[in-house]
Structure formats: C-alpha cells, structure tokens
Amino acid sequence: MQYDKEFLIGFYRTMVRIRNFELKAEELFLQAKLPGFIHLYIGEEAIATGAMANLRKEDYITSTHRGHGHMIAKGADVNKMMAELYGKETGYCKGKGGSMHIADVSIGVLGANGEVAGGLPIAVGAGMAIKMQKKDSVVVSFFGDGASNRGAFHEALNWASVYRLPVIFLNENNQFASTERVSETTSVQNIADRAVGYNIPGVIVDGNDVIAVYEVVKEAVDRARSGGGPTLIEAKTYRIKGHFVGDPVLYRNESEVNEKWQFEPISRFESTLFEMGMITDAEKESIWREAEQEIKNAVNFAEKSKYPEPESALQDLFESDTGYDY
C-alpha cells in the first residue's frame, strides 16, 4: 500500500507522544512523585498507534493495566491522564482510579483495567450493543499474552464468534505475563492459533511494525464493520521495561533486553521514513520537541492541580444519590 507523508508522520508523532509520556511517567515515579503503580508501554507503541488509526471516535476500545498508549492513540487528553497519575482532582477519574483505571467513555475508551482479561467481556457487551443498534461501529479489545490463559478470553471469543460480533481481539504479546515468560505458561506457540478453536480468523503480525499493524487491523475492522464478525490478532512485541516501574526484573538478562531494543518500533519506523524520504532531521526534531513540550505542560497542569477534597471519596458510586450509607 502507498501512504501519503502526512498519514505516516501521524503514526510517528503518535508513537513519539506515547514514548514521551511513558518516559516522563517513569521519571516521575522514580522521583516518588506518583503514588501507586505504573506499567509502561515502552517498546509497544506501534500496536496502539497502528490499530487506532483505523478507528472512529464512536468506535470503542477496552484497554489494560498497561494502557497509557491506548488512551493517547484514541485521542485522550494527556493533561487529564497525567493529573490522574498524580491523583489530582482534575484527573480523568478525579483521583479515584489512577493509572490502571483511566477511562474516557466520551471517546469510546471503556476503561483501562486492573484485572487481566477484565476488558474482554466488556468489549463483547459493547459489540452486542452495536449489533442491536444496527450500527457499523467496532470494538477493539486490547489484552496481553497472560490474558489469553484466563477463562474470560475463551468465553469472550466463543461468544463473539457465536453472535458474529464486531469485536477485534488484539493481543499484545510482549512475551511476559508479569514476571513469567509466555513460552513457559502457554500451551500454544502462537496465541493467534487459539482462534481455530473459536472458528474465527487468527492473524499474527509484527507488533513493532506500525504499518503492518495498521494493515492487519484494517482488514479485521473492515470485516467487522461489514458484519463479518470477530478476529483474533496477535501482535508480537517485547516488553522493554519491567512489569512495573521498580520491578527488580530477576527473570531475564539485560543482554536479552539490549538485543530486543534494536527492534523497538520508533527507531525502526524512523529509519523507514528516512529511507522513503518522508522525514527530515528538522521535522523529526520538531516532532520530539513538540511531544516533550506537550508532556511537560501535562506535568505542569498536574502539579498545579489540587488534590481532591477527602470527602469527595464519597461521590461517584452511583448516578442517583441513594445507597451510600445504607
């Protein structure tokens, strides 16, 4: 496929924005400025970026505990994301959720999720709604390799297949479920092979190749929009960072990480862009500077924002106001 420059630069910009957000989040966490836990998406940016380029605002996604990249690629406000990481009242969840529960229902993000495979049943439900409303929207459900060993994954794929729901199950196989290697905990070599059991297409793609991801997801999205049902896509990637910031990483060697870093998606795509003559050094510099500035502004916004009033902890359980105390 031929793509114009603006389209490809768009991929690059999104990946760079995600990378900058994550690098800053890591730095802030290590400075003890952020409470809780942070799970970084560094090295996996191509998947969210390539996938989301196929989606409209009214399409839905369900995300994971490693969800910052999905949010940014779907069009979330980085100020509100960063404020949530700080636990401030201006955050996406008014400080009630933190990194693992960021959501923006208004742009179709039906939640990051602290539970492995927690998003898949939700995605299936959104798919049922779309089908009943006779719309041509789709749902992309992101999940990790570990999630494919949970019952919810198997229930969701069977269900989506039976009802031919417009759901794309997008597996981000970063090789590690927390500290455990996928190869040691999973019965199949390729998670995409599991699609056979549910009578749906199963596709493997290089998750560090943003254009490849875009094209594979495009085919699945087109099929889903036209009533062709779900697809399981396995995007093979590698988790460059530990499970969480501060992970002692006792389960692999640094040399393995260094080797994998050679294939990280941003510099790879950058080389492609240079080879194609689609980007200049000046353009590259300006994209990085803009992204750095954007994230710097987000940190500023978050730091200037107030912590929520303690009593606000008693709000937001219900839409109607009964049922809090008794």
């Binding site: 229902v105 898949l120 049943p121 299936v124 439900g125 959104a126 919810a152």
Partner: peptide, 20 residues
C-alpha cells in the same frame, strides 16, 4: 447464551456503556 457467566455479567457492563 452460552454458559459463560463471566461474559454474561461483564458484557452487561459493556452493553450499558454503549447505550443499551
């Protein structure tokens, strides 16, 4: 539906968020 309780319940959340 299939006997898939986690999806029976979890999908209700997704369907309600999507307007049903």
């Amino acid at each position: 539906t299939p006997i898939s309780e986690e999806v029976i319940f979890g999908s209700a959340l997704g369907a309600s968020l999507a307007g049903m």
